[in-house]
Design a protein around this nucleic acid. Sequence first.
DNA 1: CCTATTGTTGAGAATGAGTCTCATGGATAT
DNA 2: ATATCCATGAGACTCATTCTCAACAATAGG
Lengths: 140, 140
Amino acid sequence: MEQHHTLAHVLRQEQLRYTNQRQAVWDEIKSTDAHRDAEEIYMALRQDNISVSRATVYRTIEVLVKYKLINKIDIGDGRSRYEHANNTEHHDHLICTNCGKILEFVDESVEELQCDIAKKYGFKLDYHIHQLFGLCKKCK
Amino acid sequence: MEQHHTLAHVLRQEQLRYTNQRQAVWDEIKSTDAHRDAEEIYMALRQDNISVSRATVYRTIEVLVKYKLINKIDIGDGRSRYEHANNTEHHDHLICTNCGKILEFVDESVEELQCDIAKKYGFKLDYHIHQLFGLCKKCK
DNA sequence: CCTATTGTTGAGAATGAGTCTCATGGATAT
DNA sequence: ATATCCATGAGACTCATTCTCAACAATAGG
């Protein structure tokens, strides 16, 4: 899939209309580096007196994930979190199993190894999940 | 956490009783190398005319995961799958985003790098998830 | 412009995996 | 034996997410 760096591009590609609600969701997600779930994003919008329904939040997130403007993070507690991928180097996550803290790490050599592995098994790699779980500095 | 290789060990450790139902669930999971969800394991037991409730399947799986007799695999479709870890070398997964096929791969060098990364961030590593998503040989 | 068509939205219903409750019954200990 | 404790199963419940559908907004064609 091609790279699409703006909401407008993505919507055009998907033949969806550009609307204030969609822009508002995208703006809200872009506004922090946090790893928030759909409900938190929805509540943040309400806080700002922007009226967007939960359904629209979920629907917009879906497209943003598809085009990789945001990343979906699943830390195994039953709800997905999202982070914007805007001007961000690719990274993976360290997750504290005690306090839920999420740290980001970059490791080029792991990235390269992944390509090799995929090639070896005849896979055309699309994306990956690489999460290290354990106790953070404070919790251990 | 210590290593516990048998159900009896695990149950003793958790101060749980050894029961036919718990053994049946463990036997069922051990019986194949498949990556099945709780419902599939439950149905397989019913197929064999073994009467174990869904609740017991879930409860037993929980303990088995805790003691790493089985691995939980989340491929992002909303249900967890499980594979036995019996006499099995540690491995991670390649997942086909088209047909859902799951392949296993082992990569020692990735394993080592993970330790380094955890150390660098002051984490005490417990376990990790490393999944490569893409199209398998057939689907691409 | 006016109207038909099509896409979007929001509210709440529906879904579905997983968890919890609680009455029943089986195991254990005294 | 008998009292206590634990495990079980059926179904109620939870909660994130998806779906439905009526109302509404945008767009296109005349």
